[in-house]
C-alpha cells in the first residue's frame, strides 16, 4: 500500500479541487437556463416563479454584491460558499458520528 495517497494529502487535494471549481472554473460555466427553467419557459409556466425571499442576499445568484469584476464577484461567492459548506457539513457529520472505542483504537493504531 506504499502508493496509497496519504489521508491529509487526499483531503487537501479534495478541498483544493472544490475551491478551484467553485472559485475559478465556475466563471466558465454555461449561462444558459438549466433544464427545468428551459422547460418552464418552453411550456409556459416560467412566469409562475417568484423571487426568493433571499434574493437580496449579498451572494445571491453566486455573485458578490459590490464587486464589479464578474470573475472576482463569482469567485468570491464560490469560495465563501465552499468554506461555509465545509464548516457546516463537516461540523454536522463530526457531531453525529459514531463514537466507539473500536474507532479510537483503529485511529491510534493507524497514526
Amino acid at each position: 500500500m506504499s502508493t496509497r495517497t496519504g489521508t491529509r494529502r487526499f483531503y487537501a487535494v479534495a478541498l483544493l479541487v472544490s475551491l478551484l471549481v467553485a472559485g475559478v472554473a465556475s466563471y466558465y460555466a454555461s449561462s444558459h437556463p438549466d433544464g427545468l427553467e428551459y422547460v418552464a419557459e418552453q411550456t409556459g409556466f416560467l412566469d409562475s416563479a417568484e423571487d426568493s425571499a433571499t434574493a437580496d442576499s449579498p451572494l445571491a445568484d453566486y455573485q458578490t454584491s459590490g464587486v464589479d469584476d464578474p470573475r472576482v464577484s463569482g469567485g468570491v461567492a464560490g469560495v465563501v460558499g465552499v468554506v461555509v459548506m465545509l464548516v457546516l457539513s463537516t461540523g454536522l457529520f463530526w457531531l453525529i458520528r459514531r463514537r466507539e472505542p473500536r474507532d479510537r483504537e483503529a485511529r491510534d493504531a493507524g497514526s
Partner: peptide, 24 residues
C-alpha cells in the same frame, strides 16, 4: 460516519456544492 469517514463526508458535500456551480 466515524472518526475516519466524517471528514470525507464533509468534503463530499463541499465538492457537490462546488460542482453544482458548473452548468454544462
Amino acid at each position: 460516519l466515524d472518526d475516519r469517514t466524517a471528514p470525507m463526508a464533509g468534503l463530499v458535500a463541499t465538492f457537490v456544492f462546488a460542482a453544482q456551480m458548473i452548468n454544462f
